[in-house]
Amino acid sequence: MAKAPISPDQYTKPIRRILVGGVFVFLLSIFALWRVDGARVEKFRAGLIDRFVPNLEWAILPIRSVSGVVKNFQSYARIYEQNQELRRELQQMKAWKEAALQLELKNVRLLDLNRVRLDSRLTHISGVVLADSGSPFRQSILLNVGTRDGIQDGWAAMDGLGLVGRISGVGTRTARVVLLTDSNSQIPITVQPSGQRAILTGDNSPLPILAFLEKPELVRPGDQVLSSGDGGVFPPGILVGTVAVGPDRRLRLRLSADYERLEFLRVLRSYALEKITDAGGLVAVPQPLANRNGVLENGPGVGRE
């Protein structure tokens, strides 16, 4: 009797199944490794992104500027009204500038009176936004400054108007900033004028939530919110936004930073101050870092050029 011929598929199919099963197990194990030891995998991810994304800078920046032109083109139609608006704003800004100068003088005089010695003012490193995270679920952006420019984990990033986010994940040439709207972002803040402490929790919406307020009835929409220095690493006193009430009647924050136009960010240097745990111990002043040229940087406005 003639036997049915054995097709080569009969040998390859079981082997194939084993191999495919192996790939499944491999992917699951990568996921499990990330879940168990997130830091190591995140370091690998940061290294991978650091290796490849800056090489695409030549393509990313022109495309980004083209999209900026397209956005601006839509406003060419209203150019006259915009001009008037801008002129009015400019007048207001000039008035505010005068007020700010007066206040600064007054502040200096008062500090001098009290013999208060403040930390040297916060210096910053400027960076350009290279890329973002690619999905609306994970709000983070990539800056083109990294450990070779002195960036460390946990430092605050702001644009000219207000706090933008926090550095989490640094490579040699790039650093990732987790925005305040990301669901993993939690920042300790103070609400002025009541002076209450709260935590700003992102929940993947344009307005993050104020959580853990002790007396929410003392907080009204329009109150200013600044970062408190709780925890020691995040610098205090940075403007974050103004309080608003969301459609779900929860207290939310309208951020003062312009998230639609994130281009140049400043990363604020801050060194964790040692906590005083025992009376009589000396509190050492953190040593300022020298930058690459061996020159001590001091004063704001002298960022990385």
């Binding site: 994304v53 695409l56 393509a59 990313i60 495309i63 980004r64 999209s67 936004v129 290279l130 890329a131 973002d132 995270s133 690619g134 999905s135 609306p136 679920f137 709000q139 952006i141 990539l142 925005l179 709207t181 990301d182 992102g202 993947n204 919406s205 344009p206 998230y259 639609e260 136009r261 994130l262």
Partner: peptide
């Protein structure tokens, strides 16, 4: 496609993906 996705064209949080 990955390159296009990581372009820093701002997409507000909570927008449709």
């Amino acid at each position: 496609i990955i390159f296009l996705k990581i372009l820093p064209i701002p997409q507000t949080a909570g927008a449709w993906p």
